[in-house]
Design a binder for these strands. Sequence first.
RNA 1: GCCCGGGUGGCGGAAUUGGUAGACGCAGCAGACUCAAAAUCUGCCGUUCGCAAGAAUGUGCUGGUUCGAUUCCAGUCCCGGGCACCA
Length: 940
Amino acid sequence: MEYTFREIERKWQQAWKENKAYEVPNETSKPKFYVLDMFPYPSGAGLHVGHPLGYIASDIYARFKRLKGFNVLHPMGYDAFGLPAEQYALEHGVHPADSTARNIATFRSQMDKIAFSFDWSREVKTSDPAYYKWTQWIFLQLFKSWYNREADKAEPIDTLLEHFSKEGNSRHPLPNAQSVIPGLENNNFTAGDWNGFTEPVRQAILMEYRLAYCGYGEVNWCEALGTVLANDEVINGVSERGGFPVEKKRLRQWYLRITEYADRLLKGLQTVEFSEAMKEMQGNWIGKSSGAEISFAIAGYDAATLDVYTTRPDTIFGVDFMVIAPEHELVGEITTADQKVAVEAYIAYVKSRSERERMAEKKISGVFTGAYAVNPFNQKQIPIWISEYVLAGYGTGAIMAVPSGDERDHKFARHFNLPVTNIIGEAYNGEEANPTKDAKLTNSDFLNGVVMREAIDIVIGKLEEMGIGKRKVNYKIRDAAFSRQRYWGEPFPIKWIDGIAYPLDESELPLELPYVESYKPGPDGEGPLANIPEWTASHLETNTMPGYAGSSWYFLRYMDPHNDQTFCDRKWSDYWRQVDLYVGGTEHAVGHLLYSRMWTKALFDLGYISFDEPFKKLLNQGMIVGVSRFICCDDANHQLLSHDIAYRDANSQEKIEALQRIYTTRRVPSEYVDKLGRFIISKTEDFIKEFKLQGYKFIPNEDGIIELEFAIEKMSKSKRNTINPDDIVFEYGADTFRMYEMFLGPVEMSKPWDTKGIEGVHRFLKKLWRLFFDEAKGKLVTEEKATPDELKILHRTIKKIEEDTERFSFNTSVSAFMVCVNELTDLKCHKRQILEPLLILLTPFAPHISEELWQQLGNSTSILDAAFPAFEASYLVESSKEYPVSVNGKMRTLINLDLNASQDQVQEIVLANDIVQKWMEGKPLKKLIYVKGKMVNVVV
RNA sequence: GCCCGGGUGGCGGAAUUGGUAGACGCAGCAGACUCAAAAUCUGCCGUUCGCAAGAAUGUGCUGGUUCGAUUCCAGUCCCGGGCACCA
């Protein structure tokens, strides 16, 4: 009997489907385990071999946990709303709903061929009204909540109303001190004020507290995409999708008040198992820094103080100038008449520069305002400058510049010839700033001789005493822009009446996205929904939610996917709780992962779930990159040459360079390349036709082969270097494909796809098959009792696979199978006692062949329900009495030492001494060291 | 510039975390079976010297700790990733 993988795989996939083998009950006595993949965005390109890497890893782990007796939730779905589908719609006139449905069907068929153990009965699609009903519902909960800083948690807005009507906002000042509320003189009000406010004023105030709120703000506007983007969707001044320019624009936007969660998002990182790199990235994004806010008096100007934020209050005597952002509110007021022209010119110049220019050039520029601040400790007058290197959006938009300690301040001082006060003695060399915290202060009045690190607290204490400063923590993270001027997203369940946002009633959900023929932008930066008369007539919000809305909570919906009464019954979220293992790429480090962590915390605060971190352990899979091939091309002579022919004489760098001037290269799509990376000769005609190379001739080498050059690149449809998993599965089977992807290397690592290596894994499965069947003799399996050597092989393998799989080392697991099968083949071991447990071990990796052989052994139930075999330590003890000995630190040989037999160390050493002495031909032994109970080291 | 990773054969990668480096696989070489091919099997496969047994050397580089270092420490050079006027 042969290993007919296509037939076997089709048969079992069918059987598992019919038996609903992967459906997971909520009600069971088993312990739970939740393994989740980041669900895909169903793009039109379909899956390539890089995509399933993480899915295979998580599938193996899920199946492994199932064998170990867990009730494993392992679902899959689609992140179906989003920009690309709409871009595609605009370009091709296909409705996003249609193209998305078609793409999902492709994804599904590709995934089915790889035999993932997903419970498809729990599938979710974020664009499904039954799903986004609850996305809208959660949005409403955020809208109807505020963050109580005293309790450090979100609460329903009603509790805030209670505070307001009893005591105004004295205990709960506006989260954003810079907020401007029309009709409210300053941002503080009493209970009496509150009760006297009109409804619009009250609503405007409440909006400033809501966790999901609408306001005007500087946003990242992308003209080409016609929408606003979140900070994490903008990279180096261009959009992540498409690379279009992004500019700052002031627009009405919805936001999530994620800043209120900054500290908890940071602290929560300590409770989850994310990679250090991932924690670092999130930590950077949140960007916590602590220091002080200091109010400087402005000479001759009493109306306001100049407030700066600094992490280094210890350097206060080194402040040589102040710098404020060009947008700073005081600019107009403090600028002296002399400087007015220069300042206005500078502000005009700054406005003329785009975000990108600013970032690309980093020119030192600025202008003096003519005004002076006063150092509160020594009354020194400090000039106030304006420069674009100070950002309006961070801290107070003003800094105290300490050129001896800060590189940017130092450059600025140099550029404008400002004096530099040295407050760190020899630690400052006069050439460049030294940001140390460990120097002793000089020129610093009462701080002279104090180490800077310690001076920080002293200064803050003094400032607080004087009432001109306070300890302050700052974060880089900004509230997340939550609206898109787009069609293909969740509509906001909000109605605008007389400028006030009213939430829809829960009974009105879902607010369905209307079907439209055109996705053209609406008027005045509004979304396409503004083009629909019925929509605007009902005063509905015309923006839609961003792509990350639906993905911020989908892991909860899988627990209770068909519930139409609530987003997820508390009973089931209490059972499944956190995702135990979350697998996905690093690209979502500061987007999706941060947002879903915030939503989880908010839902936790509001009492809807019982945990406040969604993902317990995060495994980041690497990318599988492609190998692109290029053919050497001699355009002058119309020849396409085998690489070795073209570069035959390239024995020096000069010659190589000379040849490179003669030849160019042309990209060869993967379908023209064989497994060994050579051009497939039979396709020359097609290639010439496709790339319009009429008259070109192919020049193979002596062996009739056309060798190609290669480069490692990211797989992409446009580069035509993708490998479709369907093709691999067709040629080798899903089991081989699964094992090979794991065998390539650690899951976390990026690596190039190399098709030729897959043969080895395929050979392994055939070899395994031959332990059970011989083509001529038929069934080989016997009921004979296993020998100790065979048992040793089995139990060692069980131990290794269990340990390696538990620590996600799937590549070494696959190797362990190969070693085991090689050894059993050598021993001609065909015993059921050995082979049956081996099949169970293999099930997570290669489910089809395992199930087939399992049934062939006469088992009546599915191997999916088998129990993971336990190893017996007794078989693992080394039977050999030989131990390695090192002499002078070098491992020399094995000698006959019975260390296990004796518990008495002295006896062992004597024994070793004896033998080693003999072995060393009488050379004296100076020292004998007993190490680790198994190793004897001798120093001569 | 700052912060994380990582440098091991021709290649992908192992090494129980301080104990015989190079498992497993690919590629390569030699052989068996075969009319032949495929498939399968066996042996060899870091470098240098040697007919061989064997010896020396070897985990980016330079030092250090140790009986013993791919593993720990210091310095240095490369490669990959992230952040980047955040005061």
